[in-house]
């Protein structure tokens, strides 16, 4: 998880060449991390997508099962960043949480600057990231997300499922 933390601390110090990700560039990863945190934010129930490592899930699957979604991620991130720079002069991950939120709300409705998206449907892009975030946050930890079953703790579902003993209340 060390590399993960350093990205958050030094988003501007990284380059494409030294990317610690399987698929994303460091810049792309910073954007997706912020986007996923909007989709599943940290709140009173506990950590959000960032803490659960949702980005690890998405990054890993984009070079495996989801390889056919690579282009939509690259183009989508680029289009979103184009919109952010045009509207606010900053990249998505560097904007305030509330500003990011309203941008996502617009994207969900297809309301971000159309020209920036070319043939890509921004609603489709956002829905794809929503699905992948949910899978990474609520799915099995072995795929990279849901660190230590943190979403299961929040839902008060016992974990790991111990065959034949899953009626016992686990200590959390």
């Amino acid at each position: 998880m060390a590399g993960f933390g350093s990205i958050l601390l030094m988003p501007s110090c990284v380059t494409r060449i030294s990317s610690s990700w399987k698929f994303f560039t460091e810049e792309e990863a910073s954007c997706v991390i912020a986007l996923c945190e909007q989709i599943i934010p940290k709140d009173e129930h506990g950590g959000g997508a960032t803490e659960a490592g949702v980005i690890h899930y998405i990054d890993r699957q984009l070079v495996a099962v989801f390889d056919y979604d690579q282009l939509i991620y690259q183009k989508g991130i680029s289009a979103l960043q184009g919109c952010c720079l045009e509207l606010h002069g900053k990249r998505f991950e560097n904007l305030d949480f509330d500003v990011q939120y309203s941008l996502c709300t617009e994207m969900e409705k297809g309301g971000l600057i159309r020209e920036r998206w070319g043939e890509l449907d921004q609603v489709r892009f956002f829905r794809l990231v929503i699905s992948h975030s949910m899978q990474g946050f609520y799915g099995a930890p072995r795929h990279g997300g849901n660190k230590d079953y943190m979403s299961y703790r929040m839902m008060d579902l016992d974990f790991p499922l111990v065959v034949g003993r899953n009626h016992y209340k686990h200590l959390s």
Partner: peptide, 25 residues
Amino acid sequence: MPYLYTGMRPPGAAQWGSEHKDFQM
């Protein structure tokens, strides 16, 4: 299961964000 449940929401409910997560928990 939890991922399947992320799609079980009343009509018009949030599909993402803190409202969606709160509903889940």
